[in-house]
Design a binder for these strands. Structure first.
Lengths: 207, 207
DNA sequence: CCATGTGAAGGTATTCACAGCC
DNA sequence: GGCTGTGAATACCTTCACATGG
């Protein structure tokens, strides 16, 4: 069943598979079965096969999937096969931590610019990135930066996203705990850390 | 339709509603319609009404929902009506940022203990919490700490969760980018920040 | 024989439209 | 009139079982 529309839930899982594939690439093996990958990532093997079936035949029956090839294909689907330069807005505690966070590299993503309103932060260097004044946000387009991470206080989130959109950004990862509006050509994913912690107690029996 | 089983997706949205209710509580209004709440939180009004319908009749036709009462009820459902003390393991960049993060308070959650293996970090005070040696993790039970946040490197995640489970923790928010195993009486939510950023390009048209 | 890929079945969540109530 | 609560319809996702292919 080639070239079907890929379900959102599958897209959500693709980065997990990619991570697993890259981890298992170190094992020396060239191929990997859906069952073995399932072990790595904690998703049932039939789910993995179903997910992969949405975008073509990449496995070999009796053998498994070619790790290298599958990883490349997933990157292509996720559009991680071209360089994606990312900007960070808001260099507070969380922003600084994100600047130092090595995890983005896993997916070929890099934070190459950082902005803040606070003049005391402007000019600082964190992890090889110089913090710039927020007013310079309009240089993003010419610098070919199409992704942004928003780590500003809640009140500043909407104006921040507005200026990012004006600067030509196409995708935003928002850490501010609020809804932000954007034209639908711009994808916004909001990640409210506290919210995730808040739904844990629901699943805890007692105490 | 009272006392139905609450769908997982509804549980996921409850903290959003709670946040919206608390924000709108400042408006001076006593009541709020599903439509008005929809504006605040960015979830359609029919979805909100459906979600609330799973746990009883809290609204008044023609008037809306009593903000205070609904907020209290949601807290009860999420089991946020009792004190939930939280521990943090791993006081690196991300861990430190989480210690300073004020957002948990929104849900009545507090980080009251922090642990790290690095002796240079032990003894430090961040945001009124003293960093303790990791070996003291076994004191969690007697200190009535049932939630934990894991912000350690990937390799350390599984052993960390193991010792948390041994120390009686019932819920874990894991920031390490990997699957972690735990007995099913313990709920683990893994939040891989880079993964969220990685699925943005998929939704971006071009460039 | 082993592992993939996929129709079909089953389950869950979203969306609609409207009856019922203030 | 306005807004809630909900059955019914729809869409979506998961799970299974097995035919197919190396």
């Amino acid at each position: 069943m080639r070239y079907h529309k890929i379900p959102d839930e599958t897209v959500r899982r693709l980065p997990i598979y990619l991570r697993g594939l890259m981890l298992s690439a170190d094992s020396g093996q060239e191929h990997l079965s859906s069952k073995a990958l399932a072990e790595y990532v904690g998703v049932p093997s039939w789910q993995i096969r179903k997910d992969f079936s949405y975008f073509g035949d990449f496995g070999t029956p009796g053998v498994g999937y070619h790790i290298e090839r599958l990883a490349r294909e997933i990157k292509k689907i996720l559009r991680l096969d071209v360089i994606r330069r990312t900007a960070l807005v808001g260099v507070g505690d969380l922003g600084s931590a994100l600047l130092a966070y090595p995890g983005f590299r896993t997916y070929g993503l890099d934070i190459v610019a950082a902005f803040d309103v606070d003049p005391r932060k402007v000019g600082k260097r964190i992890n090889d990135v110089k913090v710039e004044n927020l007013t310079r946000i309009d240089t993003l387009k010419e610098r070919e930066i199409s992704l942004a991470i928003v780590a500003v206080p809640r009140e500043a989130a909407q104006p921040t996203v507005d200026s990012l959109v004006a600067a030509g950004v196409k995708g935003v990862l928002n850490f501010a705990p609020c809804k932000v509006a954007a034209p639908k050509r711009v994808k916004v994913i909001t990640l409210d850390i506290a919210m995730e912690l808040a739904r844990l107690p629901y699943y805890m029996p007692a105490g």
